[in-house]
Amino acid sequence: MPANATLNPVPGALARFQDAFECALLAPDSAPAAELAALTKQPAFAVYHNTIMKGCIDALQANYPAVTRLVGEEWFRTAASVYVRQAPPTHPMLLEYGASFADFLTGFEPAAELTYLPDVARLDRYWTEAHAAPDDKLLDPASVAGLAPDVLASTILRPHAATRWAWFSNSPIYTIWSRNRTDETAGDEIKWKPEGALLARPRDVVQWITIDAGGCAFLDACAKGCSLGAAANAALETKIDIDLVRLMSTLFAAGAFSEISFQPKCMEGHQ
Protein backbone atom coordinates (compact mmCIF):
# COMPACT_ATOMS: atom_id res chain seq x y z
CA MET A 1 0.00 0.00 0.00
CA PRO A 2 1.44 3.44 -0.87
CA ALA A 3 2.35 5.55 2.13
CA ASN A 4 -0.24 8.21 1.31
CA ALA A 5 -3.11 5.78 0.74
CA THR A 6 -4.97 6.73 3.90
CA LEU A 7 -4.52 10.45 3.26
CA ASN A 8 -5.64 10.30 -0.37
CA PRO A 9 -7.70 7.16 -0.76
CA VAL A 10 -8.40 6.15 -4.32
CA PRO A 11 -12.12 6.75 -4.80
CA GLY A 12 -14.20 3.64 -5.36
CA ALA A 13 -16.28 3.02 -8.46
CA LEU A 14 -19.36 4.69 -6.95
CA ALA A 15 -17.43 7.83 -5.99
CA ARG A 16 -15.82 7.94 -9.46
CA PHE A 17 -19.27 7.65 -11.02
CA GLN A 18 -20.52 10.52 -8.86
CA ASP A 19 -17.47 12.68 -9.68
CA ALA A 20 -18.01 12.11 -13.40
CA PHE A 21 -21.80 12.60 -13.22
CA GLU A 22 -21.43 15.85 -11.28
CA CYS A 23 -18.80 17.09 -13.69
CA ALA A 24 -21.12 16.40 -16.63
CA LEU A 25 -23.96 18.22 -14.84
CA LEU A 26 -21.94 21.31 -13.98
CA ALA A 27 -20.06 21.56 -17.29
CA PRO A 28 -22.40 20.05 -19.89
CA ASP A 29 -20.38 21.51 -22.77
CA SER A 30 -17.07 19.83 -21.91
CA ALA A 31 -16.26 16.23 -22.84
CA PRO A 32 -17.57 13.76 -20.23
CA ALA A 33 -15.40 11.13 -18.53
CA ALA A 34 -15.12 7.95 -20.63
CA GLU A 35 -17.32 5.85 -18.32
CA LEU A 36 -20.06 8.47 -18.46
CA ALA A 37 -20.14 9.06 -22.23
CA ALA A 38 -22.71 6.27 -22.65
CA LEU A 39 -25.03 8.22 -20.32
CA THR A 40 -24.47 11.80 -21.40
CA LYS A 41 -25.15 10.97 -25.06
CA GLN A 42 -28.66 9.77 -24.12
CA PRO A 43 -31.13 12.64 -24.65
CA ALA A 44 -32.59 11.91 -21.20
CA PHE A 45 -29.39 13.08 -19.50
CA ALA A 46 -30.65 16.62 -20.10
CA VAL A 47 -33.61 15.89 -17.79
CA TYR A 48 -31.25 15.87 -14.80
CA HIS A 49 -29.44 19.02 -15.88
CA ASN A 50 -32.73 20.81 -16.56
CA THR A 51 -34.41 19.68 -13.33
CA ILE A 52 -31.44 20.79 -11.22
CA MET A 53 -31.16 24.14 -12.99
CA LYS A 54 -34.92 24.74 -12.67
CA GLY A 55 -34.84 23.77 -8.98
CA CYS A 56 -32.03 26.24 -8.24
CA ILE A 57 -33.53 29.08 -10.28
CA ASP A 58 -37.01 28.54 -8.78
CA ALA A 59 -35.47 28.69 -5.30
CA LEU A 60 -33.58 31.89 -6.08
CA GLN A 61 -36.66 33.50 -7.60
CA ALA A 62 -38.73 32.57 -4.54
CA ASN A 63 -36.07 34.17 -2.32
CA TYR A 64 -35.76 37.39 -4.37
CA PRO A 65 -39.34 38.44 -5.27
CA ALA A 66 -38.72 42.21 -5.28
CA VAL A 67 -35.72 41.85 -7.58
CA THR A 68 -37.79 39.59 -9.85
CA ARG A 69 -40.64 42.08 -10.00
CA LEU A 70 -38.25 44.94 -10.81
CA VAL A 71 -36.41 43.27 -13.67
CA GLY A 72 -39.11 40.89 -14.91
CA GLU A 73 -39.11 37.11 -14.70
CA GLU A 74 -37.27 36.47 -17.97
CA TRP A 75 -34.36 38.78 -17.12
CA PHE A 76 -34.23 37.40 -13.58
CA ARG A 77 -34.11 33.77 -14.67
CA THR A 78 -31.35 34.49 -17.21
CA ALA A 79 -29.27 36.25 -14.55
CA ALA A 80 -30.07 33.47 -12.07
CA SER A 81 -28.79 30.80 -14.47
CA VAL A 82 -25.41 32.59 -14.54
CA TYR A 83 -25.40 32.84 -10.74
CA VAL A 84 -26.33 29.15 -10.26
CA ARG A 85 -23.31 28.09 -12.36
CA GLN A 86 -21.02 30.29 -10.25
CA ALA A 87 -22.54 29.48 -6.87
CA PRO A 88 -24.58 26.25 -6.80
CA PRO A 89 -26.35 25.41 -3.53
CA THR A 90 -24.06 23.97 -0.86
CA HIS A 91 -26.86 22.48 1.26
CA PRO A 92 -30.47 21.43 0.73
CA MET A 93 -32.24 24.17 2.71
CA LEU A 94 -33.03 26.16 -0.40
CA LEU A 95 -34.78 28.85 1.64
CA GLU A 96 -31.25 29.96 2.48
CA TYR A 97 -29.93 29.70 -1.08
CA GLY A 98 -28.50 32.83 -2.69
CA ALA A 99 -26.72 34.52 0.22
CA SER A 100 -24.19 36.02 -2.22
CA PHE A 101 -26.73 37.04 -4.88
CA ALA A 102 -26.61 40.77 -4.02
CA ASP A 103 -22.81 40.78 -4.38
CA PHE A 104 -23.14 38.85 -7.63
CA LEU A 105 -25.52 41.52 -8.99
CA THR A 106 -22.99 44.24 -8.07
CA GLY A 107 -20.52 42.71 -10.52
CA PHE A 108 -23.06 41.52 -13.09
CA GLU A 109 -22.36 43.60 -16.19
CA PRO A 110 -25.92 43.57 -17.65
CA ALA A 111 -27.15 45.08 -14.34
CA ALA A 112 -24.50 47.84 -14.30
CA GLU A 113 -27.02 50.62 -14.89
CA LEU A 114 -29.45 49.28 -12.27
CA THR A 115 -27.31 50.63 -9.42
CA TYR A 116 -30.09 50.09 -6.86
CA LEU A 117 -30.57 46.38 -7.68
CA PRO A 118 -27.95 44.85 -5.30
CA ASP A 119 -29.38 46.79 -2.33
CA VAL A 120 -32.93 45.71 -3.22
CA ALA A 121 -31.58 42.14 -3.22
CA ARG A 122 -30.06 42.80 0.24
CA LEU A 123 -33.51 43.69 1.59
CA ASP A 124 -35.04 40.57 0.01
CA ARG A 125 -32.31 38.63 1.81
CA TYR A 126 -33.04 40.40 5.10
CA TRP A 127 -36.69 39.38 4.73
CA THR A 128 -35.65 35.71 4.42
CA GLU A 129 -33.32 36.02 7.42
CA ALA A 130 -36.05 37.66 9.50
CA HIS A 131 -38.60 35.04 8.40
CA ALA A 132 -36.39 32.08 9.38
CA ALA A 133 -34.70 33.57 12.46
CA PRO A 134 -34.96 31.76 15.79
CA ASP A 135 -37.97 32.50 17.97
CA ASP A 136 -37.06 35.13 20.55
CA LYS A 137 -38.59 37.09 23.41
CA LEU A 138 -40.33 40.34 22.54
CA LEU A 139 -39.52 43.33 24.77
CA ASP A 140 -42.44 44.82 26.64
CA PRO A 141 -41.93 48.62 26.42
CA ALA A 142 -43.40 48.90 29.94
CA SER A 143 -40.27 47.22 31.32
CA VAL A 144 -38.24 50.21 30.10
CA ALA A 145 -40.78 52.91 30.91
CA GLY A 146 -40.56 52.16 34.64
CA LEU A 147 -36.77 52.61 34.88
CA ALA A 148 -35.20 55.62 36.67
CA PRO A 149 -33.38 58.00 34.24
CA ASP A 150 -29.85 57.08 35.44
CA VAL A 151 -30.65 53.36 35.20
CA LEU A 152 -32.19 53.89 31.78
CA ALA A 153 -28.97 55.45 30.41
CA SER A 154 -26.97 52.34 31.35
CA THR A 155 -29.58 49.84 30.16
CA ILE A 156 -28.78 47.68 27.14
CA LEU A 157 -31.47 46.89 24.61
CA ARG A 158 -30.81 43.65 22.73
CA PRO A 159 -32.25 43.54 19.18
CA HIS A 160 -34.69 40.66 18.55
CA ALA A 161 -33.13 37.71 16.67
CA ALA A 162 -35.27 38.51 13.61
CA THR A 163 -34.53 42.27 13.47
CA ARG A 164 -32.56 43.53 10.43
CA TRP A 165 -31.77 47.10 9.42
CA ALA A 166 -29.67 49.00 6.89
CA TRP A 167 -29.01 52.57 5.84
CA PHE A 168 -28.69 53.25 2.11
CA SER A 169 -26.91 56.57 1.65
CA ASN A 170 -27.32 56.81 -2.13
CA SER A 171 -30.83 55.85 -3.09
CA PRO A 172 -34.40 55.32 -1.88
CA ILE A 173 -33.93 51.56 -1.54
CA TYR A 174 -36.66 51.19 1.09
CA THR A 175 -39.32 52.71 -1.18
CA ILE A 176 -38.19 50.77 -4.26
CA TRP A 177 -38.02 47.50 -2.32
CA SER A 178 -41.27 47.84 -0.38
CA ARG A 179 -43.23 48.77 -3.50
CA ASN A 180 -41.90 45.71 -5.30
CA ARG A 181 -42.07 43.34 -2.37
CA THR A 182 -45.84 43.68 -2.40
CA ASP A 183 -48.07 43.85 -5.44
CA GLU A 184 -48.41 47.59 -5.02
CA THR A 185 -49.17 49.35 -8.27
CA ALA A 186 -47.10 52.43 -9.09
CA GLY A 187 -47.55 55.14 -6.45
CA ASP A 188 -46.18 58.66 -6.43
CA GLU A 189 -42.98 59.34 -8.30
CA ILE A 190 -40.05 58.12 -6.18
CA LYS A 191 -38.04 60.96 -4.65
CA TRP A 192 -34.32 60.19 -5.03
CA LYS A 193 -32.97 60.43 -1.47
CA PRO A 194 -31.11 58.28 1.07
CA GLU A 195 -33.30 55.87 3.04
CA GLY A 196 -33.04 53.26 5.77
CA ALA A 197 -35.03 50.10 6.31
CA LEU A 198 -36.00 48.15 9.42
CA LEU A 199 -37.41 44.63 9.18
CA ALA A 200 -38.77 42.88 12.26
CA ARG A 201 -40.81 39.81 13.12
CA PRO A 202 -42.44 40.62 16.44
CA ARG A 203 -44.91 37.76 15.99
CA ASP A 204 -45.33 35.46 12.96
CA VAL A 205 -45.17 37.92 10.12
CA VAL A 206 -42.18 39.93 8.90
CA GLN A 207 -43.02 43.66 8.96
CA TRP A 208 -41.04 46.65 7.75
CA ILE A 209 -40.79 50.40 8.21
CA THR A 210 -38.40 53.08 7.03
CA ILE A 211 -35.94 54.52 9.56
CA ASP A 212 -33.38 57.30 9.35
CA ALA A 213 -29.59 57.23 9.63
CA GLY A 214 -29.79 58.02 13.36
CA GLY A 215 -32.08 55.04 13.95
CA CYS A 216 -29.65 52.75 12.11
CA ALA A 217 -26.70 54.10 14.16
CA PHE A 218 -28.75 53.55 17.36
CA LEU A 219 -29.49 49.92 16.39
CA ASP A 220 -25.85 49.32 15.36
CA ALA A 221 -24.76 50.43 18.85
CA CYS A 222 -27.43 48.29 20.56
CA ALA A 223 -26.32 45.25 18.53
CA LYS A 224 -22.76 45.79 19.78
CA GLY A 225 -24.01 45.67 23.36
CA CYS A 226 -23.62 49.41 24.09
CA SER A 227 -25.70 51.09 26.76
CA LEU A 228 -28.75 53.10 25.80
CA GLY A 229 -26.80 56.27 26.64
CA ALA A 230 -24.00 55.33 24.24
CA ALA A 231 -26.50 54.29 21.56
CA ALA A 232 -28.25 57.64 21.93
CA ASN A 233 -24.90 59.44 21.48
CA ALA A 234 -24.20 57.39 18.37
CA ALA A 235 -27.60 58.37 16.97
CA LEU A 236 -27.00 62.05 17.77
CA GLU A 237 -23.57 61.99 16.13
CA THR A 238 -25.16 60.66 12.97
CA LYS A 239 -28.23 62.90 13.03
CA ILE A 240 -27.89 66.00 15.23
CA ASP A 241 -31.63 66.82 15.33
CA ILE A 242 -32.83 63.29 16.10
CA ASP A 243 -35.92 62.94 18.33
CA LEU A 244 -34.75 60.10 20.60
CA VAL A 245 -38.07 59.62 22.39
CA ARG A 246 -39.86 59.27 19.10
CA LEU A 247 -37.15 56.95 17.72
CA MET A 248 -37.42 54.62 20.71
CA SER A 249 -41.17 54.54 20.59
CA THR A 250 -41.00 53.70 16.86
CA LEU A 251 -38.51 50.89 17.48
CA PHE A 252 -40.54 49.51 20.41
CA ALA A 253 -43.74 49.57 18.36
CA ALA A 254 -41.96 47.77 15.50
CA GLY A 255 -40.91 44.97 17.85
CA ALA A 256 -37.20 45.55 17.21
CA PHE A 257 -35.96 44.50 20.67
CA SER A 258 -35.95 41.32 22.65
CA GLU A 259 -34.82 42.08 26.21
CA ILE A 260 -32.93 44.48 28.44
CA SER A 261 -29.81 43.93 30.49
CA PHE A 262 -27.41 46.10 32.47
CA GLN A 263 -23.87 44.97 31.55
CA PRO A 264 -22.50 47.02 28.61
CA LYS A 265 -20.24 45.02 26.29
CA CYS A 266 -18.82 47.95 24.33
CA MET A 267 -16.55 50.78 25.51
CA GLU A 268 -18.57 53.96 25.94
CA GLY A 269 -17.69 56.44 23.22
CA HIS A 270 -15.73 53.84 21.20
CA GLN A 271 -18.48 51.92 19.49
Binding site: L26, G55, H91
Partner: peptide, 25 residues
Protein backbone atom coordinates in the same frame (compact mmCIF):
# COMPACT_ATOMS: atom_id res chain seq x y z
CA UNK B 1 -30.78 8.23 -4.96
CA UNK B 2 -28.07 10.80 -4.35
CA UNK B 3 -28.24 14.60 -4.48
CA UNK B 4 -25.32 16.01 -2.46
CA UNK B 5 -21.77 15.35 -3.56
CA UNK B 6 -18.53 16.94 -2.36
CA UNK B 7 -20.33 19.89 -0.81
CA UNK B 8 -22.66 20.75 -3.69
CA UNK B 9 -26.40 20.09 -3.46
CA UNK B 10 -28.13 19.16 -6.74
CA UNK B 11 -31.90 19.47 -6.24
CA UNK B 12 -32.81 16.21 -7.98
CA UNK B 13 -32.77 12.46 -7.30
CA UNK B 14 -29.74 11.21 -9.21
CA UNK B 15 -29.16 7.65 -10.47
CA UNK B 16 -26.23 5.29 -9.86
CA UNK B 17 -25.14 1.80 -10.95
CA UNK B 18 -26.74 -0.73 -8.56
CA UNK B 19 -23.55 -2.60 -7.69
CA UNK B 20 -22.63 -4.60 -4.58
CA UNK B 21 -20.44 -1.71 -3.42
CA UNK B 22 -23.39 0.68 -3.80
CA UNK B 23 -25.62 -1.70 -1.85
CA UNK B 24 -23.10 -1.87 1.00
CA UNK B 25 -22.75 1.90 1.14
Amino acid sequence: AWSTWRGVYHPDLLPFPRTEAALER
